[in-house]
């Protein structure tokens, strides 16, 4: 698959598959287009060449209605939670249910409380998003993402900016959702350690391609330089520490003169 923005190829020759019922991790340094890949999977952007298929159907060929039907089978957890700021926790979780079903209020209540209980926030049902910590907001967003019982759950950088406890909670929840509900999970992140504990399959992206794939353990054992730099968190390597610049000493002398 090839995807171009403003004349620059974000992906060129990218080829990967996330398998049903498994947790698949897309890893890579910042700016490699991990979030863009999610936009392509969810039909918010289209590949210039090649194919993006979800449940075997080509995303690009879908009509607006078909795309919305596909999205009803998906749940997505955004980096910042993306909760509706003028609604409380309960209404945020109830939002997709009210939009897509005509369920009675008692049934909606049962559904919302069940999902909030699953993420441990039943007691916070009447709080506003601004009253929650970042980790709690993400748990509410997770409850909202699973309230329609999706087949696929997509997590966009779920660990960013979280303290170790919240990170552990989110990790456990991703694993639980996958094991208990059999949800296919796609996690985009650069937190190698957290992903290693939950992912079944991993893909390391760099320069618009998959540079390595396999289980997290296989990636850790890889001898490839790009993989070693990323998994080991090394400052310099194939991904340079310095942004392209003129010669350092020459530039310093220019300033002096």
């Amino acid at each position: 698959m090839r995807y171009v923005v403003g004349g620059r190829a974000i992906f060129d020759g990218l080829n990967l598959t996330a398998r049903r019922g498994r947790i698949t991790a897309f890893m890579g340094p910042s700016g490699t287009g991990k979030t863009t890949l999610l936009r392509l999977i969810t039909g918010q952007a289209y590949a210039e060449r090649g194919s993006v298929r979800v449940f075997g159907d080509e995303v690009r060929a879908m009509s607006g209605k078909q795309l919305f039907a596909l999205r009803q089978r998906m749940g997505m957890l955004f980096q910042n939670g993306a909760l509706l700021t003028d609604e409380d926790v309960y209404e945020n979780v109830a939002f997709p249910v009210r939009a897509h079903t005509r369920l009675s209020e008692p049934l909606i209540r049962q559904l919302v409380l069940t999902k909030l209980h699953a993420v441990g926030l039943r007691g916070a049902a009447r709080l506003m998003p601004a009253e929650l910590s970042g980790g709690m907001q993400r748990r509410v967003a997770l409850a909202r993402a699973i309230v329609m019982d999706p087949d696929i759950l997509i997590y966009d950088e779920p660990f960013v900016g979280l303290d170790p406890i919240s990170m552990g909670v989110i990790c456990r929840l991703i694993k639980q959702m996958n094991e208990a509900l059999g949800i296919t999970s796609i996690v985009v992140s650069h937190d190698v350690h957290e992903l290693s504990t939950i992912a079944h399959d991993s893909f390391l992206l760099s320069s618009g391609k998959v540079v390595a794939s396999g289980t997290p353990a296989e990636l850790h054992a890889s001898k490839l330089e790009e993989v070693r730099q990323f998994m080991g968190g090394l400052a310099d390597g194939p991904v340079p520490f310095h942004y392209p610049a003129p010669d350092y000493f020459k530039q310093l002398l220019e300033v002096e003169s």
Partner: peptide, 21 residues
């Protein structure tokens, strides 16, 4: 602000049309 905090994108991802809602 809804746009900059991804709320509109989140709606689209929930198959809810933000133009309508």
């Amino acid at each position: 602000l809804m746009k900059s905090t991804d709320q509109l994108t989140a709606m689209q991802m929930m198959a809810v049309d933000p133009l309508r809602y």
